[in-house]
Design a protein around this nucleic acid. Sequence first.
DNA 1: CTGAAAGCGCTTACAG
DNA 2: CTGAAAGCGCTTACAG
Lengths: 349, 349
Amino acid sequence: MKGIRRLAQHLDISIGTVSRALNGRPDVNEDTRKRVLEAAVELGYVPNQSGRSLRQGTTNTIGLMMESSAQTVENSDNFFMGVVDGAQSVFARHQLDLILLPCSTDEDPNAYLQRIVARRLVDAMIISATRKIDKRIDMLEKAKIPFIALGRSESGHNPPWLDLDFEGVASRAIDRLVGRGHRRIAIAVPHNEANLGYIFLDGYKQALARHGLAFDPDLVTRTSSSEQGGYFAADELLRSGKQPTAILLIYEVMAIGLYRRLAEAGIHAGRDFAVIGFRESPQSRFLSPPLTCFRLSLRDLGIALAESLLASMPSFKHHYPQTPAHRIWPMELVEGESDAFELPVKNQA
Amino acid sequence: MKGIRRLAQHLDISIGTVSRALNGRPDVNEDTRKRVLEAAVELGYVPNQSGRSLRQGTTNTIGLMMESSAQTVENSDNFFMGVVDGAQSVFARHQLDLILLPCSTDEDPNAYLQRIVARRLVDAMIISATRKIDKRIDMLEKAKIPFIALGRSESGHNPPWLDLDFEGVASRAIDRLVGRGHRRIAIAVPHNEANLGYIFLDGYKQALARHGLAFDPDLVTRTSSSEQGGYFAADELLRSGKQPTAILLIYEVMAIGLYRRLAEAGIHAGRDFAVIGFRESPQSRFLSPPLTCFRLSLRDLGIALAESLLASMPSFKHHYPQTPAHRIWPMELVEGESDAFELPVKNQA
DNA sequence: CTGAAAGCGCTTACAG
DNA sequence: CTGAAAGCGCTTACAG
């Protein structure tokens, strides 16, 4: 005898009553409930999830898909853990568990997600690292499983999403650099299909246009989102002959490699060359020079993400009536020293 | 009509035969199997996991617990993703899925794990960030669920574990530094109960003793495993008056903050002060100076971890008869420039 | 080689 | 307020 049967036998009542007591149903004698709850703790009884899921048709689990390939390995660092922690604080209110589903580099991300969804492992999904065209979105819509995308995409029929304010960051960064005399401003974007690269680039172009500056494709470096990528970006720009005086980085980790390559060329970031990173990270301020970048609360982002997802789920939406399905997450400028100088007029071309 | 019933109806055969065909049982007509397999693809049928789990008593899922608190947030960066990818490649051979179970900062890690295990969410667990005394191990042993620890612990009855060669790293680092004339060598270890701190420190002490050097507790800095922690470590050592000439870091990220604090004091890492980091990371070689540290293949580590776990599981052990239950993972020196100088004799105290 | 039936551990109408 | 029973979607002895 095991599981709920054992507990029921121990208490000499029916398994139905045990279940109702444990699940907080109102139609249970308070005394009975108390006995059940105590016995459950005593015997260490916790309902078998497979049994519950099968019967209820829900798993009480939310999945967050991670790709250990390109995007994430290079960039994830602590991004996800912060977001996850915020999201969990929301899910916990509803007894939902968040699990992370890592898609192996050996497996096709679409097939992986399809399999997870078809097996009914989770009630809803969070996907990230969205691509401009992202089949996962079409697939999830077709499967009619609730989901939210961390990142915009052109696929699907505008499903719930939350995304960082790439446009705002690009815009403010350009304003800042132009204000300090820069005219030849480079930009480093991911070399993969991540949609954020397109959005960031668009924001950059628009900001340039606002200042009457021409867009020069040669000032766009496509590279990996890593230290290595930053090194290559600097290398490419040094060789291009375009002589930019500043650069905007989509990933702050790039700054480390970029600084290094610049130093090798005798260029001092923050004095001869301006650098603005994207997201503030624990290391930004310890770099030399400290990196100018943009701050956001990962925990708050995770909270918003979870709330917007729940707002789209039939069984939870009544708890989140005002929660928007789409949100651009604002980011706050953190002044470093990597762009803290005025460009001499002679260099303003 | 849905699930396996729908597929069976579509093919006009019984659900039992469908199930057998899908599960590769030998007692199925090959023609029938072919029809079933094709129809499954056509209708997009994938067995409901709750149904399978309930019936089979196994979930075909392995869990990896992550703590988004202390240890991991500060240090995880890409460590886990590499390990996970390696582990998945092993689990995939056996149709096992690996899921990541993040324990929220709001929840007690022991209670969290207990809950996961009791709900029978997974067939086996991988735990990490082991503490010297780690109740999770006692709990898992009591629950009789297979598990492996990434990191040693003093708890339990020597369960399967895999751990990095902290002793070897400490030993070789000290040899190297002593060989270059250093006598006052500091060490930075985690300020929490992570067992690796104790092991690393022991290795350090033994290596000192081998060289006839006295252990000085004032040269031990306990700090957080972050850039910030490195900054504090340097700060503390500068104030201590002990004037170490070198330091051994348990986490390579500390180097960034440490370099910075040293620079603020006019000390040039790699010229006036030697630094040796622990694990090589993508950034090690882009730092100035490039950090001397130790390399390991995260993927291979993940593979070994998964194999040792499977070797401890009754249903899989026959596939891994030779796999050891306990392994110290070797690491290979990567020479940087952070310790590439001989200490002038006058400083050798 | 196939089908009919039992049963994994739960939750939930339903009857009393 | 409680119990007995049905049934969620599968897999697997068992019978034929």
